[in-house]
Nucleic acid binder design. Sequence first.
DNA 1: TATGAATGAGACTTCATTCAT
DNA 2: AATGAATGAAGTCTCATTCAT
Lengths: 198, 198, 198, 198
Amino acid sequence: MESRQRILDATVEIAGERGYDGTSIAAVSAKCGLPASSIYWHFKDKDDLIAAVIERSFETWLTAVELPAQETGTPLERVLTMAANVARSLVDAPDFLRLGLMLALERRPTEPRGRTVFLQVRDISRQKITEVITALFPALDEAAVDTLATYAIAGADGLFIQREVIGDTVDLVALFELHARLVHDAAFRMAAVAPPRG
Amino acid sequence: MESRQRILDATVEIAGERGYDGTSIAAVSAKCGLPASSIYWHFKDKDDLIAAVIERSFETWLTAVELPAQETGTPLERVLTMAANVARSLVDAPDFLRLGLMLALERRPTEPRGRTVFLQVRDISRQKITEVITALFPALDEAAVDTLATYAIAGADGLFIQREVIGDTVDLVALFELHARLVHDAAFRMAAVAPPRG
Amino acid sequence: MESRQRILDATVEIAGERGYDGTSIAAVSAKCGLPASSIYWHFKDKDDLIAAVIERSFETWLTAVELPAQETGTPLERVLTMAANVARSLVDAPDFLRLGLMLALERRPTEPRGRTVFLQVRDISRQKITEVITALFPALDEAAVDTLATYAIAGADGLFIQREVIGDTVDLVALFELHARLVHDAAFRMAAVAPPRG
Amino acid sequence: MESRQRILDATVEIAGERGYDGTSIAAVSAKCGLPASSIYWHFKDKDDLIAAVIERSFETWLTAVELPAQETGTPLERVLTMAANVARSLVDAPDFLRLGLMLALERRPTEPRGRTVFLQVRDISRQKITEVITALFPALDEAAVDTLATYAIAGADGLFIQREVIGDTVDLVALFELHARLVHDAAFRMAAVAPPRG
DNA sequence: TATGAATGAGACTTCATTCAT
DNA sequence: AATGAATGAAGTCTCATTCAT
């Protein structure tokens, strides 16, 4: 029970730093102090281990982000609060998204299950974003919501990468707020132009 | 001379799909038809090879992007044209950015030279963007230009990733134009608020 | 446990015949019947393996030489007995000294640990010789004892090499006795000339 | 012409430090500045190169030792002068003997030609020593001369090794003189005991 | 007289994984 | 519930050598 967590802790750290191929069972074993064979007692194979890491980190990240989900205020206020929450969660636990993006960028013949899992949980996030946009701007048609959701996620990914690359100088919270504001404005304008649904 | 190119061609393809660790010399050898030992005649080691790939792909990408650099029209028109150019270049030759982002996301104890090179050439691009923003919106102060440049690059990275992940359904050119429009509007508003420089 | 010994047995034989660079892991693997990767379970790397070989062979050799250490008789008798013992031990198990001398003669930028270990155990032997000379000829000053110890070891090394090079025609026991006799005479004369210590 | 010498210079240095297997053509190429293929223009193969090195260093060493070969004085004086000469030559150019001994100690299935050459030139030296002993002590029978020659060479090898291992602290000239004195005394005593020849 | 380019074999080492205990 | 030992495949890289020019 406790060993399983130690293994996952070690793996999230290594895989978050070096990606799928860069994560060797021997390295995980060294970092968590358990022999390699013990890792195979808890996980079917490396693929299973990485997938488990993705699952667990996503759950951790989800609770960190969702807890203070706010339901009142103007659309802009609510969007800004959400953006700040996401930004802070990414600063605190960047391993999830870093590893996920590395997996997502790869294109290998037999796709690691961890990649599939990441794309699935990412889709859940996208679903949430779509719902929020639809709720805040009911006038938007489906295509517009889709475009905005894509753009919203893209900005989040991109800003996260900027921080990973450039370092702490990047004020992630401020940039996420700028991003939220721009998405909000775009949605506002699109909604004004669009004919009401129905 | 010709062999060197064949090796680079093979490597760009494999590394663009599987990242640093996923790129085995044996795979490169198989793809380019030269024995592994010949690769070591042309490149000091794997690190050197990957770095050379980054260098060459960046140059290719640069010429693809820069050739149609336009100098007339309103700021919005010019920004839109640039965005469309970049979008098209990324659709045509995604290997450069895909590999670069994978390298950039990694955090290994001894940094691959390819990563350093990628970050350097990326800085050149950022410089260019900064210059364009300054030229189009002279009223902006340095901090604002910096923020906008960071946001512009972040959007580009993020949208690229969205396309890589979701697939061709994503209309990269359209999204880049939306991105350009939003950055332009933000710059416009910031410049209006800001006191004129000097 | 048992595998470790099989690996060491194979290595001592090969390394004793071909030196550090001439000892390939593949050859050791072939000789001991275990796959190469198993060797790396028992030893960190080739350097570690060679060092372990030196350590074990020295201990084997030490017990072979020391058991019949005699404590009575005239100085000459005692010295002759010791010399004969050493000679016989070198005839029986020449691998230790052969490998050790090969390592000792090398001068590579990063010194193999096996070399360090050999020089250390060699120093232990020198210590023993020094003690014996001091015990048998208390009148000798430190410098004289040092010179005699150096000469005694040099003769042993040199005679061993002669046998290795020329072959069994060389009567190692007889030559070691001649050597012992000459060292004894030299010590005797030096002690007679030297003013008594203290 | 000049290239050949540069190659030999580089090889003697590397081979004198790392032995046969430790001497790679690439390393020699790097040290002498000529491409590997040029080495093969001057020498048939690696074996040929090493053998050439042995031959050349022996000749260099021979002239260094022989030039001041003295023909007058008492036996002891002459022996002492010779010993000092040899000692000095070994201090000045240790590569020859160091490489030679490394080759001599190895026992590989297909003997390097360099080893054969070394043993041959070593035999020439032994011949010289035999002649000198016979000349100085005509009363000795063949077996005694042989024993003394073996012992003389063994001492030289062993003392050389001591210096290589321990370092410059070892006064090679003084130790060679001690060695010469002991060999001389042994010869003197053996000759006194032995019935005159013929 | 020399060398740039190539090459198959083999070097050391790590890989993911299994299995008996 | 866990692990010491093993293993075949594959990893990066160096080896001695060749050959066309």
